[in-house]
């Protein structure tokens, strides 16, 4: 039997110093190539779930396994390494390091993971070639590659962030409301690009959003409020 890419069982989490449990998930699985749309209004625990999946937060109870590695049994540095090697993140906005060029921002993923660096080199001829290839695919014009990222539009910035998440072929791509700063037309365009690249890389895409209209084009849709047994009202922050 194939190992699921993401496997969550009986997961509970509470912030230290904060009151009650804010995440309580019985089960969540995702296989290779799955494209999950996780829908949830703000306050439903999206950010917390991402922190748990990234191995930055530790659950109070239950297990999270990524590619067969059980996060709860790993040391924090090992979890950091797992995240670096196997997960690409795209955030809401301000995804890029302002003092690095477009290409350097894309290559950032390869700086902290030799696995992704080697895979990127294997895929292209060199790191720069692979970054250029991905940026081409994501419609970033060649003349923008060496510009400071602050000169880019929000849409361009999000596509550069997607290139960074995809370089080195991570098995998991997690996108946290990456389109909320874009207008409707560009949202669809961005989603299409992201989906296409994830399919090409056979990566599992976890797309988190409060906007249910974006759900088309994903092969699974999950509502976080129905997944999370803790009621949203309880953790009004």
């Amino acid at each position: 039997m194939k190992t699921p890419v993401i496997q969550i069982k009986d997961l509970a989490f509470r912030y230290p110093k904060a009151g009650g449990i804010c995440i309580d998930i019985q089960e969540l699985n995702a296989d290779a190539g799955d494209r999950l749309f996780i829908y949830g209004p703000s306050g439903s625990g999206k950010s917390t779930l991402l922190g748990l999946l990234g191995g930055v937060l530790s659950p109070e109870r239950g297990t999270i396994s990524l590619l067969g590695h059980e996060l709860t049994k790993m040391t924090p540095p090992a979890r950091d390494r797992l995240r670096a090697d196997h997960i690409g993140f795209v955030f809401q906005q301000f995804n890029l390091i302002p003092y690095l060029s477009v290409t350097d921002n894309v290559l950032l993923s390869c700086r902290f993971s030799s696995r992704r660096r080697n895979r990127a080199i294997a895929s292209g001829k060199s790191l720069l070639d692979e970054a250029a290839r991905l940026l081409d695919h994501l419609d970033i014009a060649p003349e923008l590659r060496h510009r400071p990222v602050t000169q880019l539009s929000v849409g361009q910035q999000q596509r550069v962030a997607a290139a960074r998440a995809l370089i080195g072929g991570p098995e998991i791509v997690i996108a946290d409301e990456p389109t909320s700063a874009l207008d409707a037309e560009r949202q669809t365009a961005f989603l299409d690009l992201l989906s296409r690249e994830c399919i090409a890389a056979n990566a599992t895409l976890l797309f988190v959003s409060h906007d249910r209209r974006l759900a088309s084009g994903f092969n699974r849709e999950i509502s976080l409020p129905s997944l999370n047994l803790v009621q949203a009202e309880q953790e009004a922050a």
């Binding site: 930055v56 950091d80 670096a84 995804n95 302002p98 902290f112």
Partner: peptide, 16 residues
Amino acid sequence: RRELAILRSVGARPLD
């Protein structure tokens, strides 16, 4: 803080 979170997301350890 945003910059540090980005670095964390690409795998930087708290020690880094």
